[in-house]
Amino acid sequence: DHWEIRVGDITIHLKDVDEEIIRWVEEALRNGDDLEEIKRWVEEVLR
């Protein structure tokens, strides 16, 4: 699977990601969370 999350001008590409993570990231972006923080979290989860 390949996911693209778009929020404003930001697009995040994710592969082999659980839908729950996608929802979490979308929510975090909508809440204005720091992008670097989100990326770190996702990388942590995917490890």
Rank of each mutant, 00 (worst) to 15 (best):
D1R: 03
D1W: 13
D1N: 15
D1Q: 11
D1G: 11
H2Q: 10
H2L: 11
H2W: 15
H2K: 10
H2D: 12
H2S: 12
H2Y: 15
H2T: 12
W3I: 05
W3M: 04
W3E: 05
W3D: 03
W3H: 07
W3S: 04
E4H: 05
E4K: 02
E4F: 11
E4D: 07
E4Q: 07
I5V: 08
I5K: 01
I5W: 08
I5E: 01
I5F: 13
R6E: 09
R6K: 13
R6Y: 05
V7E: 08
V7P: 02
V7M: 05
V7S: 02
V7L: 13
V7N: 05
V7I: 11
V7T: 02
G8F: 06
G8E: 06
G8C: 00
G8S: 06
G8V: 05
G8I: 06
G8W: 05
G8Y: 03
D9S: 10
D9M: 11
D9H: 06
D9C: 00
D9A: 11
D9F: 09
I10Q: 10
I10T: 07
I10N: 05
I10M: 09
I10D: 04
I10K: 10
I10F: 14
I10G: 04
I10W: 13
T11W: 10
T11P: 02
T11N: 04
T11H: 08
T11Q: 06
T11E: 08
I12K: 02
I12C: 01
I12L: 09
I12V: 12
I12E: 02
I12T: 02
H13D: 09
H13K: 13
H13I: 14
H13E: 12
L14W: 14
L14C: 05
L14R: 03
L14T: 02
L14V: 12
L14K: 02
L14P: 03
L14Y: 07
K15N: 10
K15I: 12
K15V: 11
K15P: 03
K15S: 06
K15H: 13
K15G: 09
D16E: 08
D16C: 04
D16R: 04
D16K: 05
D16L: 06
D16T: 11
D16Q: 07
V17L: 13
V17M: 12
V17G: 04
V17N: 03
V17W: 07
V17H: 07
V17A: 09
D18E: 07
D18G: 13
D18Y: 14
D18H: 06
D18P: 14
D18W: 15
D18T: 14
E19D: 13
E19G: 07
E19S: 14
E19C: 02
E19R: 11
E19M: 15
E19L: 12
E20Q: 12
E20H: 09
E20Y: 14
E20T: 10
E20N: 11
E20P: 06
E20M: 07
E20K: 06
E20I: 09
E20R: 11
E20G: 07
E20V: 14
I21L: 08
I21A: 02
I21M: 09
I21N: 01
I21G: 02
I21K: 02
I21Y: 03
I21F: 10
I22K: 10
I22F: 13
I22Q: 10
I22D: 01
I22V: 11
I22L: 13
I22E: 02
R23M: 08
R23K: 13
R23H: 08
R23G: 03
R23C: 03
W24K: 15
W24Q: 12
W24N: 04
W24L: 09
W24H: 12
W24G: 05
W24F: 09
W24C: 03
W24P: 00
W24V: 08
V25G: 00
V25H: 00
V25S: 00
V25M: 04
E26S: 12
E26R: 13
E26C: 13
E26V: 15
E26H: 13
E26A: 10
E27Q: 12
E27V: 09
A28L: 06
A28T: 11
L29K: 01
L29H: 01
L29W: 03
L29Y: 04
R30D: 05
R30P: 01
R30H: 11
R30W: 08
R30K: 11
R30F: 09
N31L: 12
N31V: 05
N31K: 13
N31W: 04
N31I: 03
N31H: 07
N31D: 01
G32K: 04
G32N: 07
G32V: 09
G32F: 12
G32T: 10
D33G: 10
D33C: 15
D33K: 14
D33Q: 15
D33P: 11
D34W: 15
D34S: 13
D34T: 15
D34H: 13
D34G: 09
D34Q: 09
D34N: 14
D34A: 11
L35C: 00
L35F: 13
L35I: 13
L35P: 09
E36S: 06
E36G: 07
E36I: 06
E36F: 04
E36R: 06
E36C: 05
E36A: 08
E36Q: 08
E37V: 07
E37N: 10
E37G: 10
E37D: 13
E37I: 06
I38F: 04
I38C: 01
I38S: 00
I38P: 00
I38M: 03
I38T: 02
I38G: 00
I38H: 00
I38V: 10
K39F: 14
K39Y: 14
K39M: 15
K39G: 05
K39C: 04
K39D: 02
R40V: 03
R40K: 14
R40T: 05
R40P: 00
R40H: 07
R40D: 04
W41R: 10
W41D: 00
W41V: 14
W41Y: 15
W41A: 05
V42I: 14
V42L: 15
V42W: 04
V42P: 00
V42S: 00
V42F: 06
V42Q: 00
V42D: 00
V42H: 00
E43H: 05
E43I: 10
E43K: 02
E43L: 10
E43C: 12
E43T: 02
E43P: 00
E43V: 04
E44Y: 02
E44A: 06
E44N: 03
E44R: 02
V45L: 15
V45N: 08
V45Q: 15
V45A: 15
V45I: 13
V45Y: 15
L46W: 03
L46Q: 03
L46I: 12
L46N: 01
L46V: 05
L46A: 02
L46S: 01
L46D: 01
R47C: 11
R47M: 15
R47F: 09
R47D: 12
